[in-house]
């Protein structure tokens, strides 16, 4: 039995017909929508490689059933940059070498965007490490990841202050 959903993905409205209610958001993105930037690491919500934002909150797309997302807004790594201008978090990961093999990187970046939006961690390294603990990096580029999140937080805070002024 099929069912239809409408949702916004990276700013574009999409109408999607699902033939199985169990299709995950991750499989929808990768296999149906040609958005393979979101990675499948463990497929059980334990590694964070598939992290995306749903309605602004970070979730594991491998544990999110697409059918429940009617009306939702989804942002993936492909939707972060504005044209050629990288998002501040992407820029910070680039500058701080926040990766080696790169496979966990889209999930790390989306998780960091979510973390910064949550606003609890600030630029406190310990809180960032706690907040990023749902994203495993087997290469252990954790120094670069933590520094990138700190740096991006500072930049985005400064930018927000500037915009407000």
């Amino acid at each position: 039995m099929s069912l239809s959903i409408s949702l916004s993905i990276n700013g574009a409205a999409r109408d999607i017909v699902l033939d199985d209610v169990r299709v995950t958001l991750l499989d929808l993105l990768r296999e149906r929508l040609a958005l393979p930037g979101t990675k499948k690491g463990c497929d059980r919500g334990q590694c964070g490689a598939c992290t995306v934002l749903v309605n602004g909150q970070r979730v594991n797309s491998c544990l999110t059933l697409a059918a429940t997302l009617d009306g939702a807004t989804v942002t993936t790594i492909e939707g972060l940059a504005q044209g050629d201008r990288l998002h501040p978090v992407q820029q910070a990961f680039l500058e701080h070498d926040g990766f080696q093999c790169g496979y966990c990187t889209p999930g790390q970046i989306m998780s960091a965007v979510g973390l910064i939006a949550e606003g609890h961690a600030g630029d406190d390294a310990d809180r960032i490490r706690e907040g990023m603990s749902g994203n495993l990096c087997r290469c252990s580029a954790y120094r670069g990841i933590t520094e990138a999140v700190q740096d991006a937080t500072r930049r985005m805070t400064a930018q927000a202050a500037e915009d407000a002024a």
């Binding site: 993936t76 790594i77 990288l86 680039l94 500058e95 080696q100 790169g102």
Partner: peptide, 12 residues
């Protein structure tokens, strides 16, 4: 940085 760094951070 890595040669593929811009690709990695943009999911490409």
């Amino acid at each position: 940085p890595h040669d593929a760094a811009p690709l990695h951070v943009s999911g490409k």
